[in-house]
């Protein structure tokens, strides 16, 4: 395709988007438009190839970065632009929901859902909140499968001791999966709850974020309650 033709085509596409909106474009046109900002090659052809390989722009954006860069004709600039999409989603979600206080299972689920947007692979995190359940800080404990939890007990204790907070949340994601906990998830959670109690802290909840749903351990009575009174200030739906 001659350079002049390419330029003309890009201008036409931009005009189409500008006049008729995002939904007026086909998936292929959307991807072509996106790619035209990051490379000067034949973006129409590249968009076609990528879509036949990945199925949709969303699954392209969900792919591991290394895998993405292996594709021929996908430059570093293009890969970054594609990976920016889930980041922007996360920013927009946070902006929209503005969750900083986790005083109910709903807000906790929303908060952790936003945290895992665009995350490739599994991650286990721990979040410290103050007495009013305002988020103080978050630490990633493990990447990959949560069967790497042996090392985490030490990290959790470390985090809890160093923190000035006494209330903690745990969360992990099941990308492409359902949010139902496995037996090892349940056992691990009981152990962590136990350990935190010994350190004078409490595990408020463990939230699992699936691809379409969220699961709260406390809502499903899977957290051992060591104190006589239930956790004050945290409401289950």
């Amino acid at each position: 395709m001659a350079d002049k033709d390419k330029k003309l085509r890009r201008e036409l596409l931009k005009k189409k988007y500008s006049n008729n909106g995002f939904d007026a474009l086909t998936e292929e046109e959307k991807l072509e438009l996106l790619l035209s900002y990051s490379c000067t090659g034949d973006t129409a052809q590249l968009a076609k190839e990528l879509l036949s390989e990945y199925g949709s722009i969303n699954s392209l954006a969900n792919t591991d970065v290394q895998l993405l860069m292996k594709e021929k004709n996908v430059s570093e600039q293009a890969a970054v632009l594609i990976k920016l999409i889930p980041c922007l989603s996360r920013t927009l979600y946070l902006e929209h929901f503005k969750i900083t206080t986790l005083n109910s299972t709903d807000s906790a689920k929303s908060f952790f859902t936003s945290h895992f947007i665009g995350t490739v692979g599994e991650q286990l995190i721990i979040t410290a909140v103050n007495k009013r359940f305002r988020v103080v800080n978050t630490k990633v404990l493990a990447f990959g499968s949560p069967s790497q939890t042996y090392a985490s007990y030490r990290d959790i204790a470390d985090f809890a001791v160093k923190s000035s907070c006494t209330v903690f949340f745990m969360a992990h994601n099941h990308p492409q999966g359902v949010s139902v906990p496995s037996d090892s998830d349940i056992l691990f959670t009981k152990n962590v709850s136990n350990a935190l109690m010994r350190l004078g802290s409490v595990l408020a909840d463990h939230i699992i974020i699936g691809s379409d749903s969220a699961f709260s351990f406390r809502e499903n009575s899977l957290l051992p309650d060591f104190s006589a009174s239930p956790l004050k200030g945290y409401t289950c739906k």
């Binding site: 988007y17 995002f22 999409i85 922007l88 927009l92």
Partner: peptide
């Protein structure tokens, strides 16, 4: 225009 485009991609991702 580019910012609006990225906004659209971001919302459609969810």
């Amino acid at each position: 225009l580019f910012m609006k485009l990225m906004y659209d991609f971001g919302t459609s991702y969810l």
